[in-house]
């Protein structure tokens, strides 16, 4: 038996909206520690890792580890039916191939029950080692979204360069070139407005912009984003979900032959 209750159905809805274009089918692994999902896009260039800790839920019960394969577009269809302030309760048991989403209005006057068919998904799971990264940049998530969208109108790829003084995003295309340089900014009223650059050694990497633009769909989930880079390694783009976990996107770099 699995049962979990979230104060805001809207949170899960936003999470699924932010990843469903990248991965259409995925298996949620449920255990006593929470709900996790790891999946690659169909071209195996990017990977999504979602972690929702059990202590971030209002109620969480998972008698034994349990896998729930879901079509994320179908899941999104159901989650869209939740009211803005509805709570969400998820229920599933091994006896039937269904997960139930219960949406309850704040005054408890409306209770909607949606049952989604579960599916068996065969996917390759990758072990992601904990690594020290050469550079870690934290910046407002809206700023990162603006940068990748702006550069996406100039070129297909972005070259990210981190030095101790700044982080540069550069793109080129048929119409010309663009470089956006962000300096470290610590003296802000709100901590989420900071741009923090931690550099062990300088890095310079190139990535396909369309994936980064896709990752930035998670902007509304967190005020700031953390980008971790090491030479010839996938970049990590992390959105922390307050009090419950994170969504991490990994993207393999473009490499010179």
């Amino acid at each position: 038996m699995f049962e979990a209750q979230m104060a805001q159905a809207a949170l899960l809805k936003q999470i699924i909206e932010s990843i469903r274009e990248l991965i259409t089918e995925a298996t949620f692994e449920v255990s006593g520690t929470g709900m996790m999902l790891q999946a690659m896009d169909s071209s195996h260039v990017s990977l999504v890792a979602l972690n929702l800790r059990s202590d971030g839920f209002q109620l969480f019960r998972a008698d034994r580890p349990f896998s729930m394969g879901m079509n994320l577009n179908h899941m999104a269809k159901m989650l869209k039916c939740a009211g803005k302030d509805d709570t969400l309760t998820m229920r599933a048991d091994e006896a039937n191939d269904l997960v139930t989403f219960l949406f309850e209005s704040p005054g408890n006057e409306r209770l909607a029950e949606f049952e989604l068919k579960l599916m068996d998904i065969t996917s390759e799971n990758l072990g992601i080692p904990d690594a020290e990264y050469s550079a870690t940049v934290s910046m407002p998530s809206a700023e990162f979204q603006r940068i990748v969208k702006d550069l996406g109108s100039i070129g297909d790829t972005v070259e990210i360069t981190v030095t101790k003084d700044d982080v540069r995003f550069a793109a080129s295309g048929d119409i010309g070139n663009a470089t956006i340089k962000c300096r470290q900014l610590l003296d802000t009223e709100k901590p989420e407005d900071r741009t923090l650059i931690e550099m062990v050694e300088p890095v310079n990497l190139t990535f396909a912009l369309r994936y980064l633009i896709n990752f930035s769909k998670a902007t509304s989930l967190a005020p700031s984003v953390t980008i971790k880079l090491s030479t010839e390694m996938p970049v990590v783009v992390e959105y922390k979900l307050s009090d419950i976990g994170y969504v991490r996107f990994y993207l393999a770099p473009k490499i010179e032959d």
Binding site: L47, E124, P234, Y250, A252, E256
Partner: peptide, 14 residues
Amino acid sequence: AARQSRMAAFFRAV
């Protein structure tokens, strides 16, 4: 031009 690498080149299947 640079070649697009894949995730499996960095992380192993488990």
